[in-house]
Amino acid sequence: MKFKLFENPWLPSIISSVIIVSILCLVIFILYLKIRKLKPTDSNKGILLVVELIVDSINKFAKSYFGKYWKYYAPYILTLGLFLFFSNTSGIWGIRPPTVSLNVTLTLGLITFLMIHVTGIVNRGFFKWLKGFAEPLPFMLPLNIIGELAFPISLSLRLFGNIFSGLIIMTLIYGGFEGLAGVLGGLNVSFLVTPVFHAIFDIFFGIIQVLVFVLLTTIFVSGQIGDLEQQ
Protein backbone atom coordinates (compact mmCIF):
# COMPACT_ATOMS: atom_id res chain seq x y z
CA MET A 1 0.00 0.00 0.00
CA LYS A 2 1.37 3.39 -0.99
CA PHE A 3 1.08 6.06 1.64
CA LYS A 4 1.48 9.80 1.31
CA LEU A 5 0.75 12.49 3.88
CA PHE A 6 -0.37 14.93 1.20
CA GLU A 7 -2.36 13.31 -1.54
CA ASN A 8 -2.55 14.41 -5.12
CA PRO A 9 -5.40 16.98 -5.20
CA TRP A 10 -7.52 14.96 -7.63
CA LEU A 11 -7.55 11.80 -5.57
CA PRO A 12 -10.79 10.53 -4.02
CA SER A 13 -10.73 12.44 -0.73
CA ILE A 14 -11.14 15.80 -2.43
CA ILE A 15 -13.84 14.42 -4.71
CA SER A 16 -15.73 12.86 -1.79
CA SER A 17 -15.45 16.07 0.24
CA VAL A 18 -16.97 17.97 -2.71
CA ILE A 19 -19.77 15.38 -2.89
CA ILE A 20 -20.50 15.71 0.84
CA VAL A 21 -20.43 19.51 0.79
CA SER A 22 -22.75 19.71 -2.24
CA ILE A 23 -25.27 17.27 -0.74
CA LEU A 24 -25.21 19.22 2.54
CA CYS A 25 -25.69 22.52 0.68
CA LEU A 26 -28.66 21.11 -1.25
CA VAL A 27 -30.35 19.69 1.88
CA ILE A 28 -29.77 22.89 3.84
CA PHE A 29 -31.13 25.03 0.97
CA ILE A 30 -34.31 22.90 0.85
CA LEU A 31 -34.63 23.26 4.64
CA TYR A 32 -34.15 27.02 4.29
CA LEU A 33 -37.01 27.21 1.78
CA LYS A 34 -39.21 25.26 4.21
CA ILE A 35 -38.24 27.34 7.23
CA ARG A 36 -38.79 30.65 5.42
CA LYS A 37 -42.52 29.87 5.13
CA LEU A 38 -42.96 29.28 8.88
CA LYS A 39 -44.56 31.77 11.25
CA PRO A 40 -43.06 32.33 14.70
CA THR A 41 -46.16 30.91 16.37
CA ASP A 42 -46.09 27.59 14.47
CA SER A 43 -45.15 24.42 16.29
CA ASN A 44 -42.71 22.38 14.24
CA LYS A 45 -42.95 18.71 13.36
CA GLY A 46 -40.71 16.08 11.86
CA ILE A 47 -37.44 17.17 10.28
CA LEU A 48 -37.95 20.85 11.16
CA LEU A 49 -38.20 19.95 14.85
CA VAL A 50 -34.89 18.08 14.61
CA VAL A 51 -33.24 21.04 12.87
CA GLU A 52 -34.58 23.42 15.51
CA LEU A 53 -33.26 21.20 18.30
CA ILE A 54 -29.79 20.97 16.73
CA VAL A 55 -29.49 24.71 16.10
CA ASP A 56 -30.81 25.50 19.57
CA SER A 57 -28.35 23.17 21.30
CA ILE A 58 -25.41 24.59 19.31
CA ASN A 59 -26.49 28.12 20.25
CA LYS A 60 -26.68 27.13 23.92
CA PHE A 61 -23.24 25.51 23.68
CA ALA A 62 -21.77 28.65 22.06
CA LYS A 63 -23.41 30.89 24.68
CA SER A 64 -21.84 28.88 27.50
CA TYR A 65 -18.33 29.35 26.05
CA PHE A 66 -18.36 32.69 24.22
CA GLY A 67 -20.69 34.77 26.40
CA LYS A 68 -22.07 37.76 24.54
CA TYR A 69 -19.99 37.07 21.41
CA TRP A 70 -21.74 33.74 20.70
CA LYS A 71 -23.38 34.98 17.49
CA TYR A 72 -20.02 35.25 15.70
CA TYR A 73 -18.95 31.69 16.48
CA ALA A 74 -22.10 29.52 16.57
CA PRO A 75 -22.46 29.27 12.71
CA TYR A 76 -18.86 28.13 12.32
CA ILE A 77 -19.21 25.51 15.08
CA LEU A 78 -22.33 24.04 13.48
CA THR A 79 -20.78 24.06 9.99
CA LEU A 80 -17.62 22.38 11.25
CA GLY A 81 -19.59 19.82 13.23
CA LEU A 82 -21.88 18.94 10.30
CA PHE A 83 -19.04 18.63 7.80
CA LEU A 84 -16.89 16.53 10.14
CA PHE A 85 -19.82 14.33 11.19
CA PHE A 86 -20.82 13.48 7.63
CA SER A 87 -17.27 13.09 6.39
CA ASN A 88 -16.10 10.88 9.28
CA THR A 89 -19.13 8.58 9.02
CA SER A 90 -19.17 8.52 5.20
CA GLY A 91 -17.35 5.16 5.25
CA ILE A 92 -20.66 3.43 5.95
CA TRP A 93 -22.09 4.67 2.63
CA GLY A 94 -19.10 3.44 0.69
CA ILE A 95 -17.60 6.91 0.17
CA ARG A 96 -13.93 7.30 1.07
CA PRO A 97 -13.90 9.67 4.08
CA PRO A 98 -12.36 13.05 3.12
CA THR A 99 -10.65 13.26 6.51
CA VAL A 100 -8.25 10.39 5.66
CA SER A 101 -6.25 13.01 3.76
CA LEU A 102 -4.07 15.48 5.62
CA ASN A 103 -5.04 18.06 2.95
CA VAL A 104 -8.53 18.34 4.43
CA THR A 105 -7.69 18.11 8.14
CA LEU A 106 -4.75 20.51 7.98
CA THR A 107 -7.03 23.03 6.24
CA LEU A 108 -9.51 22.77 9.11
CA GLY A 109 -6.68 23.04 11.65
CA LEU A 110 -5.34 26.19 9.97
CA ILE A 111 -8.84 27.73 9.98
CA THR A 112 -8.98 27.15 13.75
CA PHE A 113 -5.45 28.55 14.15
CA LEU A 114 -6.40 31.72 12.26
CA MET A 115 -9.61 32.03 14.28
CA ILE A 116 -7.72 31.85 17.58
CA HIS A 117 -5.24 34.57 16.63
CA VAL A 118 -7.66 36.86 14.81
CA THR A 119 -9.92 36.66 17.88
CA GLY A 120 -6.92 37.45 20.07
CA ILE A 121 -5.87 40.47 17.97
CA VAL A 122 -9.42 41.86 17.69
CA ASN A 123 -10.27 41.35 21.35
CA ARG A 124 -7.04 42.32 23.07
CA GLY A 125 -5.41 44.63 20.57
CA PHE A 126 -2.31 43.86 18.51
CA PHE A 127 0.34 44.78 21.07
CA LYS A 128 -1.33 43.04 23.99
CA TRP A 129 -1.71 39.95 21.81
CA LEU A 130 1.99 40.14 20.93
CA LYS A 131 2.87 40.58 24.61
CA GLY A 132 0.91 37.42 25.41
CA PHE A 133 3.71 35.36 23.83
CA ALA A 134 6.24 36.64 26.37
CA GLU A 135 4.22 35.55 29.38
CA PRO A 136 4.68 34.57 32.13
CA LEU A 137 8.42 35.28 31.62
CA PRO A 138 10.18 36.83 28.59
CA PHE A 139 12.54 33.90 28.04
CA MET A 140 9.51 31.64 27.45
CA LEU A 141 9.02 33.34 24.05
CA PRO A 142 10.42 30.59 21.76
CA LEU A 143 8.60 27.92 23.75
CA ASN A 144 5.28 29.75 23.46
CA ILE A 145 5.72 30.27 19.71
CA ILE A 146 6.51 26.59 19.16
CA GLY A 147 3.51 25.64 21.28
CA GLU A 148 1.20 27.87 19.25
CA LEU A 149 2.52 26.50 15.95
CA ALA A 150 2.19 22.90 17.16
CA PHE A 151 -1.49 23.32 18.01
CA PRO A 152 -2.96 23.18 14.44
CA ILE A 153 -0.57 20.35 13.54
CA SER A 154 -1.57 18.22 16.52
CA LEU A 155 -5.27 19.03 15.97
CA SER A 156 -5.17 17.97 12.33
CA LEU A 157 -2.91 14.95 12.85
CA ARG A 158 -5.24 13.68 15.59
CA LEU A 159 -8.27 13.68 13.29
CA PHE A 160 -6.27 12.35 10.35
CA GLY A 161 -4.60 9.56 12.34
CA ASN A 162 -7.84 8.32 13.87
CA ILE A 163 -9.82 8.16 10.63
CA PHE A 164 -6.86 6.89 8.60
CA SER A 165 -6.07 4.05 11.02
CA GLY A 166 -9.76 3.07 10.98
CA LEU A 167 -9.70 2.99 7.18
CA ILE A 168 -6.56 0.81 7.16
CA ILE A 169 -8.05 -1.68 9.62
CA MET A 170 -11.27 -1.86 7.56
CA THR A 171 -9.23 -2.40 4.38
CA LEU A 172 -7.26 -5.20 6.08
CA ILE A 173 -10.48 -6.89 7.26
CA TYR A 174 -12.07 -6.72 3.80
CA GLY A 175 -8.85 -7.98 2.20
CA GLY A 176 -8.69 -10.86 4.67
CA PHE A 177 -12.24 -11.92 3.87
CA GLU A 178 -11.48 -11.76 0.15
CA GLY A 179 -8.57 -14.14 0.76
CA LEU A 180 -10.88 -16.39 2.79
CA ALA A 181 -13.40 -16.39 -0.07
CA GLY A 182 -10.79 -18.11 -2.25
CA VAL A 183 -10.53 -20.95 0.29
CA LEU A 184 -14.31 -21.24 0.76
CA GLY A 185 -14.95 -21.45 -2.97
CA GLY A 186 -15.96 -17.85 -3.72
CA LEU A 187 -18.21 -17.41 -0.66
CA ASN A 188 -17.53 -14.00 0.90
CA VAL A 189 -18.71 -14.04 4.53
CA SER A 190 -17.53 -10.50 5.39
CA PHE A 191 -21.14 -9.33 5.95
CA LEU A 192 -21.25 -11.38 9.18
CA VAL A 193 -18.45 -9.46 10.91
CA THR A 194 -17.89 -6.09 9.21
CA PRO A 195 -21.03 -4.28 10.52
CA VAL A 196 -19.54 -4.40 14.03
CA PHE A 197 -16.23 -2.93 12.83
CA HIS A 198 -18.03 -0.28 10.79
CA ALA A 199 -19.99 0.66 13.91
CA ILE A 200 -16.77 0.99 15.92
CA PHE A 201 -14.39 2.62 13.45
CA ASP A 202 -16.75 4.74 11.37
CA ILE A 203 -19.54 5.75 13.74
CA PHE A 204 -18.10 5.60 17.29
CA PHE A 205 -14.58 6.92 16.62
CA GLY A 206 -15.92 9.31 13.99
CA ILE A 207 -18.39 10.93 16.38
CA ILE A 208 -15.79 11.12 19.19
CA GLN A 209 -13.38 12.90 16.82
CA VAL A 210 -16.10 15.39 15.79
CA LEU A 211 -16.73 16.10 19.48
CA VAL A 212 -13.01 16.50 20.22
CA PHE A 213 -12.27 18.73 17.24
CA VAL A 214 -15.24 21.02 17.91
CA LEU A 215 -14.59 21.15 21.68
CA LEU A 216 -10.88 21.93 21.32
CA THR A 217 -11.61 24.63 18.73
CA THR A 218 -14.22 26.15 21.06
CA ILE A 219 -12.05 25.99 24.16
CA PHE A 220 -8.99 27.53 22.52
CA VAL A 221 -10.92 30.30 20.75
CA SER A 222 -12.88 31.14 23.91
CA GLY A 223 -9.58 31.28 25.82
CA GLN A 224 -8.78 34.41 23.83
CA ILE A 225 -12.11 35.95 24.87
CA GLY A 226 -11.96 35.02 28.55
CA ASP A 227 -8.90 37.24 28.99
CA LEU A 228 -10.94 40.27 28.01
CA GLU A 229 -13.72 39.67 30.51
CA GLN A 230 -11.30 39.24 33.38
CA GLN A 231 -9.58 42.58 32.78
Partner: peptide, 22 residues
Protein backbone atom coordinates in the same frame (compact mmCIF):
# COMPACT_ATOMS: atom_id res chain seq x y z
CA UNK B 1 -13.46 11.66 25.98
CA UNK B 2 -11.62 14.91 25.26
CA UNK B 3 -8.81 13.99 27.66
CA UNK B 4 -8.49 10.53 26.19
CA UNK B 5 -8.35 11.94 22.66
CA UNK B 6 -5.61 14.37 23.67
CA UNK B 7 -3.65 11.55 25.32
CA UNK B 8 -4.00 9.58 22.10
CA UNK B 9 -2.17 12.20 20.05
CA UNK B 10 1.35 10.98 20.81
CA UNK B 11 0.39 7.46 19.80
CA UNK B 12 -0.97 8.83 16.53
CA UNK B 13 2.29 10.68 15.88
CA UNK B 14 4.16 7.39 16.12
CA UNK B 15 1.57 5.78 13.82
CA UNK B 16 2.13 8.48 11.19
CA UNK B 17 5.91 8.10 11.48
CA UNK B 18 5.56 4.33 11.12
CA UNK B 19 3.54 4.78 7.93
CA UNK B 20 6.05 7.22 6.49
CA UNK B 21 8.84 4.72 7.23
CA UNK B 22 6.91 1.83 5.69
Amino acid sequence: LVGAAVAETTGLYSLVIAFILM
